[in-house]
């Protein structure tokens, strides 16, 4: 049995189920208690689980992340919310120097989840729209996941909480209420480290995640009518990368478009391009192409933000040029 729910409902459901399943799971963050969180992911949680487990913290991302690390080290399973992913920079030292390096240095599990409401398209401007995943992609010891659908959102939050390692969970704010889909009523998780083929195709592979999946699927639909078959690989986990799924798809199609909403230079797309050229160069029939945001801060005015962000049209054009190559 399944029913259609939104991406944000799927996250809430996953959190609720894990809170019920495991008494060592608890939530901490700014305004997540009675207020229910800036985006209402934790609405009603205090009533259900009590303020001891749904902890409204002081405003301080280093304290939140640090406290999550400390509690995780001594056997708890904290899930910390960054109100906006942008603010994770205030806790950057904690994540890259303590959390990420802990297991490697000490062989001690540090099971925590940081939820990071990310991304643009909400007129949030330079400080409420960031996609910060690439900063952490380069920092060893942190797993990164970025779901694109309600099914993956729920399955990945549950898997993240159960993982013995720190997991950064990038949840896309635009998808919160724009993405709706079938989610089973029965228990399931989505394995961390496994990409998902969201659409099978034979001519071009799109390697993407998050909002990029939706742009790619819409563009693929249009190209289908024009006789080009596009495959869409949703990475779901950004670290550790599912290189096998990427390479299998590229070897099948011979053409690759990498799409992400994050800015282009130093983005995860660069690493994917390197992997493809190292391991599938002889399979390529066209240069690897990338569609990503401009290398600027995220601008505020609607016209500027629209120009800045990738979208279905930009993905379509890139696919079209690859099809014609």
């Amino acid at each position: 049995m399944s029913r259609s729910i939104t991406y944000i409902e799927a996250i809430s459901e996953g959190l609720r189920e894990e809170l019920k399943r495991d008494p060592s799971v608890f939530l901490l963050g700014e305004d997540i208690g009675a207020y229910g969180g800036a985006f209402k992911v934790t609405k009603g949680f205090t009533e259900e689980f009590g303020e001891e487990r749904i902890i409204d913290t002081v405003l301080g991302e280093a304290a939140i992340i640090g406290a999550a690390s400390g509690a995780a080290l001594v056997g708890m399973r904290p899930v910390a919310e960054m109100q906006f992913s942008d603010f994770v920079t205030n806790g950057f030292n904690q994540l890259v120097n303590i959390t990420g390096k802990y297991h490697y240095r000490n062989f001690v599990p540090i099971p925590l989840v940081i939820r990071l409401p990310s991304g643009g398209g909400i007129k949030g401007g330079p400080f409420h729209s960031t996609n910060p995943e690439a900063w952490f992609f380069h920092a060893p010891g942190l797993k990164l996941v970025a779901p694109s659908t309600p099914y993956d959102a729920k399955g990945l939050i549950k898997a993240a909480i159960r993982d013995p390692n720190p997991v950064l969970y990038f949840e896309h704010k635009f998808l919160y209420r724009h993405s709706k889909g079938e989610v089973p009523e029965q228990e399931y998780t989505v394995e961390i480290g496994k990409a998902d083929c969201k659409r099978q195709g034979s001519d071009i592979s799109v390697i993407t995640y998050g909002t990029g999946v939706h742009w790619a699927l819409e563009a693929a639909e249009r190209l289908e009518q024009e006789g080009t078959s596009v495959e869409v690989i949703d990475l779901r986990t950004l670290l550790p990368l599912d290189t096998r799924s990427i390479l299998d798809s590229v070897k099948k199609t011979g053409k690759v478009l990498i799409v992400h909403e994050d800015t282009l230079t130093g983005g995860i797309g660069g690493e994917i391009a390197a992997i493809v050229s190292e391991h599938a160069f002889s399979n390529l029939d066209a240069p690897i192409r990338r569609v990503a945001a401009l290398d600027t801060p995220v601008p505020y005015a609607p016209t500027l933000e629209e120009y800045f962000l990738p979208n279905t049209e930009k993905v379509y054009k890139a696919l079209k040029s690859l099809a014609e190559y």
Partner: peptide, 14 residues
Amino acid sequence: GAMVPVACGAALAS
């Protein structure tokens, strides 16, 4: 200074 928030987390768990 980085371990002070972490110690805070152990105190919270306690």
